[in-house]
Design a protein around this nucleic acid. Sequence first.
DNA 1: GAGTGGTCTAGACCACGGA
DNA 2: CCGTGGTCTAGACCACTCG
Lengths: 236, 236
Amino acid sequence: MDIGQPQPKARGWEAIRAEVQRRIHDRIWLPGAMIPTEEALAVEFSCARATVNRALRELAESGVLERRRKTGTRVAALPVRRAVLDIAVIRREVEALGASYAFRLLQRHQTTPPDPVRDRLGLAANAKWLFVETLHLADGAPFALETRWLDPAVLGETPPDFKEISVNEWLVGNVPYKAARISFYAAPARPREAGILNVKLGTALLITERETAQETSPITLVRLAHLPGYRVETTL
Amino acid sequence: MDIGQPQPKARGWEAIRAEVQRRIHDRIWLPGAMIPTEEALAVEFSCARATVNRALRELAESGVLERRRKTGTRVAALPVRRAVLDIAVIRREVEALGASYAFRLLQRHQTTPPDPVRDRLGLAANAKWLFVETLHLADGAPFALETRWLDPAVLGETPPDFKEISVNEWLVGNVPYKAARISFYAAPARPREAGILNVKLGTALLITERETAQETSPITLVRLAHLPGYRVETTL
DNA sequence: GAGTGGTCTAGACCACGGA
DNA sequence: CCGTGGTCTAGACCACTCG
């Protein structure tokens, strides 16, 4: 382990990752070109192959390198960069802004979902799910409107009333899930939304939609309408 | 390595990851509770500690576990789930939809950025940057409108005219960068946008904004306005 | 100080995928 | 086939952090 000293900071596999990134940055290794094998790099850096492997694996996971057996490792030509999105509970998100969090339960009843929702979740025509509408507040002002369809089966013996704890946090703590699909899109404020969020009808809102499933059976479908000005941010 | 057989599929560290997830899922290990040490698990699964480490490390990276030295490993109470967002070049994105990609260069001139842009990038009052406006097309129809401010210094000796290759792809291949900030938000279509994208003024559009920097100095600021119906999707 | 995770090593075998 | 990355092992030392 004796890389020149790219930065006096990194050591171990992080030093190798940094050195590889430097060589790509400085165009010593060009986009699309092959780089030496793990073994060769292990010799060059006087370390074990496992250490090189760790460094290259991380770079491959973040889209900088492409690796294939037998062929070897190449610098990604059109790198698909991977950004990491932290999905936190809304309360955390509000508190992270330095505001106090609260929520109001606006609706809660069991009914047959409308066709688009039913189709999307693959439910029987007569299935009844729980519909819950929650307004999330930051320092008392509307922050986001949540409309949720929820499989009543997950509630169990003693269904909470969701006045003390929000549906979201109850689910996180009580209903483990396997997979979720998240999507972001823009949509004009609907009449009810506009009224509750106190914006003009048709205002451009960022919508976050989340669909959660256990094995193959869906658990819940959530739509979060955020106020104008809300941004989803990430670093790459 | 002899875990019962949770699934006949997984082996090695993935089997351990799956088994740990199962125990959390089945509430054998509760949210907030400590789990056994790596060494104990290595004994239980009859494998090396490094193998357990790999499994637990992955789970910690995805926010399911929280690890600290000396203290040990616990199940995250309010897990901050991490979703991975693939950021591809637009051409790839269009082609992934099964459409043919093309683009049109609408504007390209060097000028002083407006105040908000200048402030955001931290530029001198008299700095001149390149402004480039590109319309991206899928099967000949508008897909997204890109407006970009670009530091002319990165163009070098022979500035490309961006008619053959899009700015984005040229940058990806020629200007390495260190950091980028990405954000998503909703905004109403501006007059020029509405005209070019062929939507009504004020239509809710999803905007992707990306700010790229080399060391500390900014390289480019891009705003992508997507047509209604466009979604950013990810899995968790 | 002592217990835990974080990393490294040297070697081994395996799995994939070009030739 | 056989070269490459993917993983595993057994052991070691280190770094952090709590008591």
